[in-house]
Design a protein around this nucleic acid. Structure first.
Lengths: 366, 366
DNA sequence: GTCGTTGCTGGTAGCGCTGTCAACGTTCCT
DNA sequence: AGGAACGTTGACAGCGCTACCAGCAACGAC
């Protein structure tokens, strides 16, 4: 059966316009700025488009208008839970809007980021979401020169390129240590992996809090550049114990590490929190379910992504936020794993989440 | 200083061609099919492009050539670890190629999938990656009519739209149950959440294996449509125990649920595997690190994504695979949590991963 | 009554690139 | 030597849309 192939099925704007009895340009306006049309033509074009099943050709639109409706997103990792939550927020916010997301993975390399940035900017994106505040000088220059709105996410810093949404990792780490102090812990180890800039700032916060209390020692800190994992948490904790058997708490730079430390404690029959308290970071879902339940720092990752994309879209459309830098803060979620030291080595058996007392701590940057 | 703005900085193909002393169309060919040029012109165009920092305008290219270099990817979830691994594979394979990834999230809704599919196809993607084999009839028709290569991932089935890469969830579940049988377990419960088609097929596999052994009872199955989580694993297990206190093993439809079951056992002081054995699904990283280490079914998620994207790109460029359906199989990773029943309720304390004996089981579809 | 002003509509002219076809020079075959 | 076949190059037209500007009617201000 001879089916035509070339341009049989093509519904162009011209077809819609013809059916509606208007000029192509009027039909075009309908899709970009319906209010500019009289009600009569608006409804005519609308029903014509619907009847023909018209779908605009984005390539033609981009070529003619010299801009795209693409939001570029640069994140360091696709598998890290933290970023997948942020991403989900971004996608959710973009859904229903005219903008589509173009995602790229920098793999924690600012050089790779620079390369991708160059690529993105060449396509004239409508907006850009980049992770963190540690771009190369070159990247920074490109971002400043870009003629589209830009949101930096995950962190808060003094010198935004444009907009910024995140929280202070430094303050969050200090709050975690302060919480452990409150619970009577003194010899607090730090376990960190990957050591990207955000983890580094958590370490800085830990160090400063410990120094403030006169308790800092370099040997309490165990870090590696290796990507994080639960298993790695156990291994780093093992190193820490070998170096410093006398610790009474561990602050982990993320929850996977904390879970690994918990398992390692169980393997070694170390009571948690009786002998060693544990605090994680991010408050992933499983933290409330572990035995004992694990204290963590809750961060608003989904909200961060969603708000970032919403701010960005608003800015693209000319509605700039009154407040270009948004601190989403964090919360110390106190659970069993960091309870005050006690001789009884068995934590009370109770339902998961029973000890979910929260302390809100809006982060303030120094 | 009066800088021109309109088209001063614009480097077009015409500029490159002029500098290289060739016609625009020859320059164009250089970027699409360099071998078609003589070596002399090739080098001339190459250095001209480099000197001017030329970046092709993808919108113009798409408009003129009536096709895009976009690979559309439809997955049900962004946060599920399983899909983030697959995605990473897809992005890794696409990197360095001319193709860019356009990702959309169906949220486990085949209606949403249909809608997104329509959207994608309207933009004439170079290729498409879709999750699973349970599209709506309408989606299926659109896929069949699409004039681009398509890869279905995550599952293997009898009737591929085009290409297909995955494994048999049914067989994998049967293997999990067979393993528990081997270890002497008989009253094996099933815990499942979300109940998407793949989880449903795992349940089917479980049911058939249990029926084959004459051990199936409906009350051994606890499922919910709720999204999965560690906490939910504990809750579903609690339900299961209430209904059927006499079970000696639990097969969990994924690893998060398995971890939740493990924690719940610890909370209730049920020995694992002494009183209850646990088997998960996917073999996420933490399974090898838990105490006791948790048995799971290893699936090749990253490889699946990477291979899918590679196959797709090859097919786009005319190199169709000799074998359009690829079964990546699975492995039962035997660990402590499913060891044979014993009276000693305390599992042997040993390093993580000590019991990582593997059994390779290439899945075969029926 | 004349002149802006506003609201809506349409014509023209590309956006930057590639498909198609034709033309050229070169090589190989008979 | 003549012609076919191939490899290489260029001219032309147009992909589908929108920016820009002009035009027209309706309205109010002086």
């Amino acid at each position: 059966m001879g089916r035509k192939r070339t341009k049989s099925g093509k519904i162009r704007l011209a077809e819609v316009a013809e059916l509606a009895g208007v000029s192509p340009i009027t039909a075009s306006r309908f899709f970009r700025n319906p209010e500019a049309l009289s009600v009569a033509k608006r409804t005519r074009v609308e029903s014509a488009a619907k009847e023909l099943g018209y779908v605009p050709n984005l390539a033609a639109r981009a070529l003619a208008s010299q801009r795209t409706e693409v939001i570029g997103v640069l994140i360091p990792s696709l598998t890290n839970n933290v970023f997948s939550d942020v991403l989900r927020g971004i996608y959710d916010a973009s859904e229903g809007s005219r903008y589509s997301i173009q995602l790229s993975n920098t793999r924690y390399s600012i050089l790779q980021e620079e390369k991708l940035l160059r690529l993105f900017l060449a396509q004239k994106p409508a907006g850009l979401i980049v992770t963190g505040i540690d771009q190369t000088a070159e990247s920074r220059a490109m971002l400043e020169a870009a003629d589209c709105p830009i949101v930096q996410i995950m962190e808060i810093g003094p010198d935004p390129v444009d907009m910024m949404i995140g929280f202070s990792h430094y303050d969050a780490a200090r709050a975690a240590v302060a919480h452990l102090f409150e619970q009577g812990h003194r010899r607090i180890g730090f376990v960190g992996a990957r050591m990207d800039p955000r983890v580094q700032r958590r370490l800085d916060g830990y160090v400063s809090a410990m120094k403030d209390a006169g308790l800092f020692e370099q040997r309490l800190v165990v870090t590696t550049a290796t990507p994080t994992s639960v298993t790695l948490g156990g291994a780093l904790f093992t190193d820490l114990l070998a170096r410093e058997p006398d610790i009474d708490a561990v602050f982990c730079a993320n929850d996977d590490l904390a879970l690994g430390v918990l398992f390692e404690c169980r393997r070694r029959e170390i009571a948690v929190p009786g002998q060693i308290a544990i605090v994680g970071f991010n408050d992933l879902e499983f933290m409330a379910s572990a035995v004992p339940t694990l204290t963590s720092i809750r961060t608003n990752r989904y909200e961060m992504g969603k708000t970032a994309a919403t701010m960005l879209i608003n800015a693209i459309e000319g509605r700039r936020p009154e407040q270009p830098v948004l601190d989403l803060g964090f919360k110390v979620i106190e659970r069993q794993s960091s309870l005050a030291r006690r001789s009884d080595s068995r934590p009370a058996v109770s339902g998961a989440g029973a000890a979910n007392k929260m302390i809100a701590l809006p982060s303030s940057h120094d």
